[in-house]
Amino acid sequence: MNIVKVGMADLDTATDPEILRTVGLGSCVGVAIIDLNTKVAGLAHVMLPIAGKEAVENPAKFADTAIPLLVEKMRNNGAIQNRMIAKLAGGAQMFTTLNQSDLIRIGPRNVEAVKQTLARLNIPIRAEDTGGNSGRTIDFSSVDGSLTIRTVSQGVKVI
């Protein structure tokens, strides 16, 4: 089974039977999108909600620039946008004892920015496992669109 690894602030696409994997999501959000007809899948490891004003060197880092780029790459591989569905994981708050400054609340803000961007692109969210205080590692299957989530404290679940 071929595994395509997606690093932090990175994104990639895969086709049946490949699996997209990203490791150690904390406050970052894994955005998994698939067109189940063509089995073209994409995964972005989003780190921050919104790109600043300056020209963005790495669009894969921000929710509002990463998701459109991912969708475009998937379309170039034959996916149809109005058939795409999304699943989300991540957006945790890793340190519960820290003050709730804006930067520390980054997890929920990332999730919110991802949802807004998906709504703008008319891509429905089918399932999500977000928030909490645990790091997550996720595998996204291009075969059936299942998203397998591993955490240290809560074991494995599939959404």
Binding site: M8, V23, G24, G26, L48, K61, T97, N133
Partner: peptide
């Protein structure tokens, strides 16, 4: 330094907290 915070979890998830301060401006 701030008051320390502690967590037992995946190294990448923990380090991400520091990286987002960098990530807004740099890759």
């Amino acid at each position: 330094a701030s008051v320390p915070a502690v967590a037992i979890d995946m190294a990448g998830a923990i380090l991400g907290v520091g990286l987002m301060h960098i990530g807004q401006y740099s890759d």
